[in-house]
Every structure is written in structure tokens, then in C-alpha cells.
Simulated assay, not measured.
Amino acid sequence: MPAIKVDEISKFIGSEVFDDFGRSLGTLIAVESDIDGKVSSIIVKSEDLSLDVIEGERVKVSDDKVTVTPEWKFEILQVIENLDRAYKRRKAIENISSRNDLPAVVVEPMKRKLEDEIKALKLKADEVKKVVNSRIGEIDDESLKVARAIATIGISYFSGEISERGYTQSMNHLRKLQDSLSEEKKAAKDLLDKLDKVVQLASEGEVQKAVQPQPSTTTQSPVAAGPNAQQTMVVKIEA
């Protein structure tokens, strides 16, 4: 994700900030930037509760609004991108190595370094999976709360306890929240599937090494002596 410059985002100060799923995170209060103008973080006022400092890496400007990528999504996208790049570099090194254009003393250290990086990325992938699965669990809990609220407001409306206007306004908010949660859960599961695929691709070289057949050694089976076969006796004479 390219870094945003302060000039691009400063005009949105005082406007609402949204996440990738259309939910309002609050109002943009201030923008922090480095000397080169790249946004290092933004400060968002969450309703009337607190100020949140959000890393500039997760911020983008699109469709005339400021959008923030949720932390879990940002992390899994980074791991997917890095693993995909590692897989392509491994294929490139294998291609170079197969041509024998360069001495092994040059290529082998590159291979070892890349293998170490892939191992570290796979460990990071395991950590990120836990974070994303935890978020899916939270989404399920929130979805149950929304379902309960929908049932409660429905009972109140059909029993004549609240007006149609109140019912409609409440349901609009609840349905919008329900849609956002469903969209986020789908995105989380799709990205988990994608992560599994790139981990598998990045592990291809390791799998091939593990199943590489060992050179076979053939032993000549002794020929059974027939009834007419002559037997040779070897006598060892000690000096």
C-alpha cells in the first residue's frame, strides 16, 4: 500500500473516517507526518469517548473519504504478499541454479537466506491465523447480539410498544451492522484460504526435498547352487 502524503489527507480533517467495511470509526482530528510529508499516523476521535492513533500504513484515501484497514486484515495481507514474493524468488533462484551460470558459492547462500526468511514468514502466518480466527469468533459473538437486538425490537414493534418510525430507524442501523459483520467475516475466511495457498506454494521446495528418492543400491542376490554345481574351497594360508 503506497504511503499517503499529508497534502492528500489534510483536507479531510473534521470528516468521518471509515473502515474497509463501511463502519464509521469517528472523526479525523489530526494528521502526523514525517519530514518527507509521508503520513506516519492519524488521530481519530471515536464518538465522545477517546482519541485513537492509527498507523499511516493502514490509512488510504479513496472515493473522497478516508478509509482505515483493520489491523487483522492489514497483517494477513502483508504476510500473503511477502510469502508470495518469497515463492517467486525461490522459483527464480531454482531457475538460475539449474543453468549452472553462477558458482554454487554465490547461489547457495542466497538459497539458505531465502529458506530462513520463508521459515520466519510461516511462523508469522501461524500467529496471524490465530489473530484472524479470534476476530471471526468476535464477529460471531457480535452477530448474535445483533440478532437478539433485531428480535427485541421486532417484539416491541409488533406488540405496539414502539412507533413504526422508531422501529424503522432501529432496523436500518441493525441491518447495516449485520451486513458489515457478514462482509468482514467473509473477507476473513477468504484471506485465510488465500494464506493457506501461499504457505503451501512457499513450502513446495521443502516438500520436494522431503520426498526426493534416495539413490537405490542394488545387491546381487546369490545364485542358488544346483545339484551339479562345483563348490570352490578357498584355503587361507597363514604366513
Rank of each mutant, 00 (worst) to 15 (best):
D48L: 12
N100Y: 03
L123V: 01
A125V: 00
V61R: 07
D140K: 12
R89W: 14
K129S: 04
D63M: 11
D63Q: 14
R85Y: 11
L114V: 05
L114N: 03
E47I: 11
I43L: 09
N95I: 08
Y87N: 12
S50Q: 07
V146K: 05
S41P: 09
K124V: 00
S46D: 12
K124H: 00
S97F: 07
K122R: 00
A147H: 11
E108N: 05
V53W: 03
V53S: 04
A104T: 06
R99W: 04
E81N: 13
E127H: 01
K45N: 08
V131M: 05
D64E: 15
V107K: 01
A86P: 07
D141V: 14
L114A: 00
D52C: 02
I54V: 05
S143L: 15
I118H: 06
K130P: 04
E55M: 03
E57A: 05
D141S: 15
K60S: 15
E94F: 10
I96L: 12
E117I: 04
D116K: 10
I54Q: 01
R58E: 00
K145W: 08
R148M: 14
E127S: 05
E81T: 11
G137S: 10
W72M: 13
K65S: 13
E115T: 08
I42K: 06
Y87F: 15
T67P: 10
K124I: 01
D141I: 13
S97P: 07
E127A: 05
D64P: 11
V44Y: 02
S98H: 01
A125D: 07
E115G: 07
V128N: 02
I139V: 14
K119Y: 06
P103N: 01
A151G: 09
K111N: 07
I80A: 02
K60L: 13
V106Q: 01
W72F: 15
D141M: 14
S46P: 05
E94V: 11
I76Y: 04
E142I: 13
I42P: 08
R99D: 02
V53A: 02
V106T: 06
V59T: 07
I76E: 07
R148I: 09
P103I: 03
D52T: 00
K88F: 09
T69M: 14
D48N: 12
N133W: 03
S41Y: 12
R89M: 14
P70F: 10
D63S: 14
I136H: 03
I150P: 07
D84A: 09
D52W: 04
V61T: 13
R112D: 08
K145Y: 13
L51Q: 04
L121C: 01
